[in-house]
Design a protein around this nucleic acid. Structure first.
Length: 566
RNA sequence: GGGCCUGUAGCUCAGCCUGGAUAGAGCGGCAGCCUUCUAAACUACAAAAUGAAGGCAGCUGAAGGUCGAGGGUUCGAAUCCCUUCAGGCCCGCCA
């Protein structure tokens, strides 16, 4: 708010490129200008330069500046607390849940593809990080004014799907999710696991699954009917999970609807000479000129691969929408794959290949160690949510002796999910991480519940306050150190969102939130609101009010519910 | 053999893109506030130095660091460049 203004003013005064930084401690002011770079030109000691600048500038300082001094080679600027408080508080009061939006994405469309489940088993911990990152990034783009298309690519065909179908055919005995009282995706997943188990005793199942795939591809009626049935069960299960997670999509691509077209497309490009035939008849793309290994785009038996379909789908996305960016939220293992995919598109002459972007993220594991589906150590999202919810219940019960069951359900669900989301989103996506449920749930520390709790405390003050409505806020009464700090934190928010959007770093929001909440709690601790004198009370209540707005806005970006009471 | 990523306090992480002043949080641990016991002096009561044991929700305080290592660039490096070590991931018909 003030920084840009100050930079402009300084550039006029000093006639140099001005880069302002934030000093490490508050007695060094709000902004600082390092004078070391000027040394050579002016052939003077930086301390002297700083002193001279500070002296001159101080005399001509603009109205919002309290003082300008020099400290060990820096020119330090101090904002007037009253002006700062007034500007920030009034801005937030006016913008409310729009506070922090910058509109940098106006008239631009961005697509984020994430989630991408297979319809043969429930989504697990890995999908969870994917879903949450994709969802949060989408929220951020949305907030910055982009038109966001949340896309999901459902992998609903292929050999892995046939495996669960085969197992169901053999051992399913006509059971249904309903008859077994199971969630659809878990039901289907059970047969996928069953297949893997039976395969050990009977290796011939592999061929049987292959035959089933062939039948599916030919459109065999019975096979298709079974496929449709099981697919539906699975999708219903996914939708439930998405609903509890609070994840929504604008566009869903089903692999089953375009795999054939994808194959034909690749064949056409082959005929045009864009792809070459390998030793066994497979088709591949030569990427040597891009310094990448070659990529197979169609199997020797002319069945499709992920690459086949992704080439088609990438093109389709740009046909469906006028995209500024097409972002793929996919785990890091596939970094090379996406570099190849984008290079293929480039080779094929699609100018927009540069707009494609792989947002990669690290692995997520449990404290017990690596997840291995074969060893059954995979954790389903649904199970994990239940664990979080139960942990949340324990916390709530410690604080409330009696609570109605419905209310307990509601709160534990909100808190459990908040813990989950926050824990996964606060860590830089590039890093591998260990998800430890018990570390995520406490109401203290860097956790989602801590942030929610802060919001609830603030809300409680606002609920109980009486008699400040008509009183005009006198901003000079915002004068305690902690109050000033809080105001400054609130001011940072728009910059944080913009940064996290431009650099695709959702964790900045979460990091900011803990910071803000700590600052708020410090203020809460040191400044009595309700017991203060009327005019001071009015100012503090206003500060509490705008704090809740910003906390809520930030929470919303993370997809976390702000609770009035916990 | 080649490529990408990570390495910061006991643990979990932020800061690195965009170099700047004493490298920041959270958790844990430590000390204190707290509880019980002890107790000179005193007619007695209240209060209580000191020492010991216990507890831990909250509050307060302090501690904790070769920023993996080495070199370079720079007035200045956790941050940029090079080398190196450790860990993870990937490298034509898996997804």
């Amino acid at each position: 708010m003030f920084k840009k203004k100050l930079v402009k003013w300084l550039e006029k005064k000093i006639k140099e490129d001005i880069v302002l930084e934030t000093p490490p401690s508050k007695d060094m002011g709000d902004y600082a200008l390092a004078c070391f770079p000027f040394c050579k030109k002016l052939r003077k000691d930086p301390k002297k330069i700083a002193l001279e600048y500070a002296t001159v500038l101080h005399l001509e300082k603009p109205g919002y500046i309290e003082k300008i001094i020099s400290l060990s080679g820096y020119v330090n600027f101090f904002l007037k607390t009253k002006v700062l408080a007034k500007k920030v508080i009034e801005k937030i009061s006016k913008d409310k849940n729009n506070y922090g939006k910058t509109n940098i994405g106006r008239k631009k469309q961005v697509m984020l593809e994430f989630s991408a489940p297979n319809t043969n088993k429930p989504m697990h911990l890995g999908h969870l990080r994917n879903n949450l990152l994709g969802d949060c990034l989408s929220n951020i783009f949305d907030y910055e004014g982009y038109k966001v298309i949340r896309a999901n690519l459902i992998n609903d065909r292929g050999i892995h799907i046939c495996k669960s179908m085969l197992a169901y055919k053999k051992w399913g005995k006509g059971k249904t999710p309903k008859s077994e009282n199971m969630k659809g995706d878990h039901f289907v997943g059970y047969y996928y696991v069953l297949y893997q188990q039976k395969l050990k005793e009977d290796p011939k199942l592999e061929q049987a699954a292959q035959r089933l795939l062939k039948k599916w591809e030919k459109g065999d009626e019975k096979t298709i009917a079974l496929w449709k049935k099981m697919r539906k069960w699975c999708l219903q299960g996914f939708n439930e999970t998405y609903k509890t997670l609070g994840v929504k999509f604008d566009k869903i691509y089903y692999e089953s609807t375009f795999w054939k077209k994808a194959k034909n497309l690749v064949l056409r490009y082959y005929k045009k000479g864009q792809f070459i035939e390998g030793e066994d008849g497979e088709l591949l793309c030569d990427l040597e000129k891009y310094n990448l290994p070659n990529k197979v785009v169609l199997r020797a038996d002319k069945t499709t691969l992920y690459s086949t379909q992704d080439i088609y789908l990438a093109i389709q996305k740009f046909k469906d929408y006028n995209l500024e960016k097409s972002i793929y939220v996919v785990a890091r293992e596939q970094e090379m794959y996406f570099r190849q995919l984008f290079a293929i598109l480039r080779k094929l002459g699609y100018k927009w290949w540069e707009k494609c972007l792989h947002f990669s993220y690290g692995m997520i594991n449990l404290p017990e160690g690596k997840m291995k589906s074969r060893e059954g150590t995979v954790v389903d999202i649904d199970d994990l949510i239940t664990v979080m919810k139960d942990l949340a219940k324990i916390e709530i019960k410690q604080r409330h002796d009696e609570m109605e069951e419905a209310e307990l359900e509601k709160r534990s669900s909100a808190i459990g999910l908040a813990a989950l989301r926050f824990f996964l989103l606060k860590i830089d996506a590039v890093k591998d991480m260990i998800f430890n449920p018990t570390e995520a749930i406490p109401f203290e520390g860097d956790t989602g519940p801590y942030v929610q709790y802060t919001y609830a405390r603030a809300s409680s003050i606002l609920r109980r306050v009486k008699g400040v409505k008509g009183i005009e806020v006198q901003y000079e009464l915002v004068r305690e150190d902690v109050e000033r700090e809080l105001v400054k934190k609130l001011e940072e928010f728009p910059e944080i969102v913009e940064n996290s959007c431009n650099n695709l770093r959702p964790h900045l929001i979460a990091q900011y939130l803990t910071d803000l909440c700590r600052t708020f709690n410090d203020f809460y601790q040191k400044c009595k609101c309700l017991q203060a004198e009327e005019d001071i009370k009015a100012a503090r209540i206003k500060l509490v009010k705008v704090s809740t707005i910003v906390i809520k806005n930030a929470l919303t970006l993370l997809g976390i519910k702000a609770l009035e009471e916990m």
